[in-house]
């Protein structure tokens, strides 16, 4: 069964089992490996993408539910890593091993889109579903605040 949805701004059709989670469609069918596998059960956030602007765990999202929706992955967040969250992440050199960071960035991007000036409590609430085994949490918290500032400056400009 073919499903058609928007992927990073372009129309995408895939013909796979309707139950196949978006994570494996991205990684195995389309060869887009920026979205990561960590747990397969919506417990770690490594596979986070945005669907219609909200952060979603692609490992538990059957591809059949995507018809007509718009999916953004780390590859499509910006053409040149210029999204405010990516700029903040670069500025603070957040990643260690880096494996969780696609998911962290996609969650953080959805947060700063919604909240102009997120508090620490907002950040904890939004980001607690994203595990980082390397323990970059302190840097992530600082980087989300920085990203929110970049985002506000961009919005004002």
């Amino acid at each position: 069964m073919a499903v058609t949805f928007k992927l990073n701004g372009k129309s995408q059709s895939v013909d796979v089992s309707p139950q196949m989670p978006l994570l494996w469609v991205l990684r195995d069918t389309l060869g887009m490996t920026g979205t990561k596998f960590g747990c397969g059960m919506a417990l770690c956030g490594a596979c986070t993408v945005q669907i219609n602007g909200s952060p979603v765990r692609s490992c538990v999202t059957p591809v059949s539910t995507l018809a007509g929706k718009s999916v953004t992955t780390i590859e499509g967040l910006s053409p040149d890593a210029s999204h405010p969250v990516q700029r903040a992440w670069a500025e603070l050199d957040v990643p260690q091993c880096g494996y969780c960071q696609s998911g962290q960035i996609m969650t953080a991007a959805a947060l700063v889109d919604k909240k102009v000036a997120p508090t620490d409590a907002d950040i904890d609430e939004a980001m607690r579903g994203n595990i980082c085994r390397c323990g970059t949490y302190q840097a992530i918290r600082a980087a989300v605040h920085t990203a929110a500032k970049y985002r506000a400056a961009k919005g004002a400009a």
Partner: peptide, 19 residues
């Protein structure tokens, strides 16, 4: 100095074993 591998890791471009 800025870490040499950050750019790839924030763009989803770094290739890990699983990729």
């Amino acid at each position: 100095p800025k870490k040499r591998d950050t750019a790839g890791k924030i763009a989803g471009k770094t290739i890990f074993g699983l990729d």
